[in-house]
């Protein structure tokens, strides 16, 4: 259906007058439609409840609500403190809380900011996991940290190599470290790579 601009398909939806939510008519059971309506209702609620928005129009992504940022930052600092005091498990929990706070940001805010925050939080949480030898969780966190910031993040690559090495997955560790070295010749990365290579050659089978 090559749509011209004045043609559209009438969708079987209706508005619930009390909750002002849009829902599909009971006759249709298109899963895609239901998903879309869900997203629409969520967005609507977001726009209604977001601070600083009066007319239901999302502001241009130039400014950021400062309150949420300070909250998240404070949570992160608390986590850092716990880490320094070697209360690693507590640090992990605090970081998790900060992450969930960051994810509750309204979606129309500049995503680069969200990315940066998450990258830091995942990196910190990974470090906390490493300190208590939770290699699997640390690996998952450090992978996210790398995906959010690839360039200029040698520590994350180092951590990933470390996790994989500790779990005995030397080939993967080698790949990860070599990948990290692509972005810049970091001496710690090179050292870790050397260790992994040694472990590989010493492996009995």
């Amino acid at each position: 259906m090559a749509q011209s601009s004045d043609v559209f398909v009438v969708v079987p939806i209706e508005m619930d007058p009390s909750t002002k939510a849009i829902q599909a008519l009971s006759s249709s059971n298109d899963p895609l439609l239901t998903r879309e309506l869900e997203a629409l209702n969520n967005l609507h609620q977001n726009l209604k409840s977001a601070p600083g928005i009066t007319n239901g129009i999302p502001p241009p992504p130039t400014s950021v609500g400062p309150k949420l940022s300070t909250q998240i930052e404070r949570m992160r600092q608390t986590g850092n403190n716990a880490f320094r005091k070697q209360n690693y498990a507590e640090a992990v929990d605090l970081y998790t809380l900060a992450i969930s706070m960051a994810l509750r940001r309204p979606p129309w805010e500049p995503s680069a900011l969200l990315r940066e925050e998450l990258q830091q939080l995942y990196a910190n949480r990974a470090q906390a996991h490493i300190s208590i030898n939770n290699w699997p969780e640390a690996l998952a966190d450090v992978n996210a940290s790398i995906d959010f910031k690839r360039v200029g993040n040698p520590k994350a690559h180092w951590r990933k190599g470390r996790c994989l090495k500790e779990m005995g997955r030397y080939e993967e560790a080698k790949e990860a470290l070599e990948f990290g070295l692509e972005f810049g010749n970091d001496p710690e990365l090179a050292n870790m790579l050397k260790e992994v290579n040694e472990a590989l050659s010493k492996r009995k089978l």
Partner: peptide, 22 residues
Amino acid sequence: SANEIVQATRVRERAAEVAEQA
């Protein structure tokens, strides 16, 4: 705004994978 929403959705999806991977 729409652009930011698209990017943010991607970020959230990636974040959701972390727990699963762990």
